[in-house]
Protein backbone atom coordinates (compact mmCIF):
# COMPACT_ATOMS: atom_id res chain seq x y z
CA UNK A 1 0.00 0.00 0.00
CA UNK A 2 1.38 3.38 -0.96
CA UNK A 3 2.02 5.81 1.85
CA UNK A 4 0.36 8.70 -0.07
CA UNK A 5 -2.89 6.83 -0.19
CA UNK A 6 -3.18 6.90 3.61
CA UNK A 7 -2.67 10.64 3.61
CA UNK A 8 -5.51 10.98 1.12
CA UNK A 9 -7.69 8.68 3.19
CA UNK A 10 -7.17 10.94 6.18
CA UNK A 11 -9.31 13.56 4.42
CA UNK A 12 -12.07 11.04 3.82
CA UNK A 13 -11.88 9.80 7.40
CA UNK A 14 -12.44 13.37 8.63
CA UNK A 15 -15.78 13.27 6.80
CA UNK A 16 -16.61 9.76 8.01
CA UNK A 17 -16.64 8.77 4.35
CA UNK A 18 -14.30 5.78 4.55
CA UNK A 19 -15.58 2.24 4.23
CA UNK A 20 -15.13 0.03 7.30
CA UNK A 21 -12.34 -1.92 5.61
CA UNK A 22 -10.41 1.22 4.71
CA UNK A 23 -11.00 2.67 8.14
CA UNK A 24 -9.44 -0.39 9.73
CA UNK A 25 -6.50 -0.27 7.32
CA UNK A 26 -5.97 3.39 8.12
CA UNK A 27 -6.14 2.75 11.87
CA UNK A 28 -3.52 0.02 11.54
CA UNK A 29 -1.31 2.27 9.42
CA UNK A 30 -1.60 5.09 11.92
CA UNK A 31 -0.22 2.86 14.64
CA UNK A 32 2.79 2.10 12.48
CA UNK A 33 3.32 5.61 11.06
CA UNK A 34 3.35 8.43 13.63
CA UNK A 35 3.53 10.92 10.74
CA UNK A 36 -0.06 10.06 9.86
CA UNK A 37 -1.30 11.08 13.30
CA UNK A 38 0.63 14.33 12.99
CA UNK A 39 -0.89 14.90 9.56
CA UNK A 40 -4.39 14.31 10.94
CA UNK A 41 -3.81 16.99 13.59
CA UNK A 42 -2.57 19.36 10.90
CA UNK A 43 -5.60 18.69 8.69
CA UNK A 44 -7.88 19.49 11.62
CA UNK A 45 -6.00 22.66 12.47
CA UNK A 46 -5.93 23.73 8.81
CA UNK A 47 -9.66 23.02 8.46
CA UNK A 48 -10.34 25.09 11.55
CA UNK A 49 -8.18 27.99 10.37
CA UNK A 50 -9.57 28.13 6.84
CA UNK A 51 -13.21 27.64 7.78
CA UNK A 52 -12.96 30.87 9.77
CA UNK A 53 -12.29 32.83 6.58
CA UNK A 54 -15.22 34.80 5.34
CA UNK A 55 -15.33 37.08 2.32
CA UNK A 56 -17.85 39.70 1.31
CA UNK A 57 -18.53 41.77 -1.75
CA UNK A 58 -18.66 45.54 -1.38
CA UNK A 59 -21.99 46.81 -0.02
CA UNK A 60 -24.72 47.14 -2.65
CA UNK A 61 -23.86 43.95 -4.51
CA UNK A 62 -27.51 42.92 -4.96
CA UNK A 63 -28.43 46.33 -6.42
CA UNK A 64 -25.43 46.35 -8.76
CA UNK A 65 -26.29 42.87 -10.01
CA UNK A 66 -30.00 43.60 -10.45
CA UNK A 67 -29.22 46.83 -12.31
CA UNK A 68 -26.98 44.96 -14.73
CA UNK A 69 -29.65 42.33 -15.24
CA UNK A 70 -32.33 45.00 -15.79
CA UNK A 71 -30.24 46.79 -18.41
CA UNK A 72 -29.58 43.51 -20.21
CA UNK A 73 -33.28 42.66 -20.11
CA UNK A 74 -34.15 46.05 -21.67
CA UNK A 75 -31.52 45.50 -24.37
CA UNK A 76 -32.86 42.07 -25.21
CA UNK A 77 -36.47 43.35 -25.18
CA UNK A 78 -35.52 46.08 -27.64
CA UNK A 79 -33.86 43.51 -29.83
CA UNK A 80 -37.02 41.41 -29.71
CA UNK A 81 -39.35 44.35 -30.36
CA UNK A 82 -37.35 45.68 -33.30
CA UNK A 83 -35.60 42.64 -34.66
CA UNK A 84 -35.09 44.22 -38.13
CA UNK A 85 -33.58 47.46 -36.88
CA UNK A 86 -29.94 46.42 -36.63
CA UNK A 87 -29.74 44.69 -40.07
CA UNK A 88 -31.75 47.54 -41.63
CA UNK A 89 -29.27 50.07 -40.29
CA UNK A 90 -26.46 48.06 -41.75
CA UNK A 91 -27.99 48.01 -45.24
CA UNK A 92 -29.01 51.68 -45.08
CA UNK A 93 -25.48 52.70 -44.17
CA UNK A 94 -23.97 50.51 -46.90
CA UNK A 95 -26.39 51.96 -49.48
CA UNK A 96 -25.62 55.50 -48.22
CA UNK A 97 -21.88 55.04 -48.57
CA UNK A 98 -22.34 53.52 -52.06
CA UNK A 99 -24.55 56.46 -53.19
CA UNK A 100 -22.00 58.96 -51.86
CA UNK A 101 -19.22 57.20 -53.68
CA UNK A 102 -21.19 57.22 -56.99
CA UNK A 103 -22.00 60.92 -56.52
CA UNK A 104 -18.37 61.86 -55.94
CA UNK A 105 -17.21 59.72 -58.85
CA UNK A 106 -19.77 61.20 -61.29
CA UNK A 107 -18.82 64.68 -60.06
CA UNK A 108 -15.20 63.94 -60.79
CA UNK A 109 -16.07 62.73 -64.29
CA UNK A 110 -18.10 65.83 -65.09
CA UNK A 111 -15.78 68.43 -63.50
CA UNK A 112 -12.45 66.69 -63.90
CA UNK A 113 -11.45 67.64 -60.37
CA UNK A 114 -12.55 67.23 -56.80
CA UNK A 115 -11.46 70.71 -55.65
CA UNK A 116 -13.67 73.05 -53.62
CA UNK A 117 -13.87 75.45 -56.60
CA UNK A 118 -15.18 72.76 -58.90
CA UNK A 119 -17.65 71.71 -56.22
CA UNK A 120 -19.10 75.27 -56.09
CA UNK A 121 -18.82 75.70 -59.89
CA UNK A 122 -16.36 78.61 -59.57
CA UNK A 123 -13.32 76.91 -61.08
CA UNK A 124 -13.68 78.86 -64.33
CA UNK A 125 -14.04 82.20 -62.49
CA UNK A 126 -11.09 84.60 -62.33
CA UNK A 127 -10.59 87.54 -59.94
CA UNK A 128 -11.56 89.93 -62.77
CA UNK A 129 -14.93 88.22 -63.08
CA UNK A 130 -15.58 88.80 -59.42
CA UNK A 131 -14.46 92.47 -59.47
CA UNK A 132 -16.57 93.25 -62.52
CA UNK A 133 -19.50 91.50 -60.96
CA UNK A 134 -19.16 93.54 -57.74
CA UNK A 135 -18.64 96.81 -59.61
CA UNK A 136 -21.45 96.51 -62.10
CA UNK A 137 -24.05 94.49 -60.28
CA UNK A 138 -26.16 97.59 -59.73
Amino acid sequence: MKRGKFYRWLWMSEENALTETRKKKLDRAMKKMPDLEKSRREIRKLSELLSERDYHFRPGFVDRTMNRIASQVIQSQNAELFPGIAPAFKWISIAGVAALFILVFSFYLSQGSLSIESFFGTNSFSDDNLISYLLYQN
Binding site: F57, R58, F61, R64, T65, R68, I69, Q72
Partner: peptide, 10 residues
Protein backbone atom coordinates in the same frame (compact mmCIF):
# COMPACT_ATOMS: atom_id res chain seq x y z
CA UNK B 1 -14.08 39.37 -8.17
CA UNK B 2 -17.05 41.73 -7.94
CA UNK B 3 -17.57 41.48 -11.71
CA UNK B 4 -17.37 37.70 -11.68
CA UNK B 5 -19.80 37.62 -8.76
CA UNK B 6 -22.33 39.67 -10.72
CA UNK B 7 -21.68 37.67 -13.89
CA UNK B 8 -22.42 34.45 -11.98
CA UNK B 9 -25.95 35.61 -11.26
CA UNK B 10 -26.40 37.09 -14.75
Amino acid sequence: ADDVGQETFI
